[in-house]
Amino acid sequence: MDAVFRALADRNRRRLLDRLHARNGQTLNALCDEMGMTRQAVAKHLGILEAANLIAVQWRGREKLHFINPVPINEIAERWIGKFERGRLQALTDLKKQLEEK
């Protein structure tokens, strides 16, 4: 669990997860676009996310594809969010979303 929090503590790593959430299964090259950092730096961030099990990788021929894996985040949520809180939190999240969209 420490590894998950450490991995999520960095803005660039959260951005990489956002980009995989928008389009899953991307290569390192594709993920380097618009990140404004070296390929090595992006590869290092991806390595940290993979070690925390927040990214799953799969080889397709010679291409290494990266997929977002939200299961550890769900496990963290389950630890502190019980079945009764879930509905209320969902209502608050929906409300926040609605207000922000206006």
């Binding site: 389009r23 899953n24 299964g25 799953a56 939200p70 550890p72």
Partner: peptide, 10 residues
Amino acid sequence: TEDTIYVTYI
């Protein structure tokens, strides 16, 4: 046609 891949350690 994006795959979804989820991993958990048990």
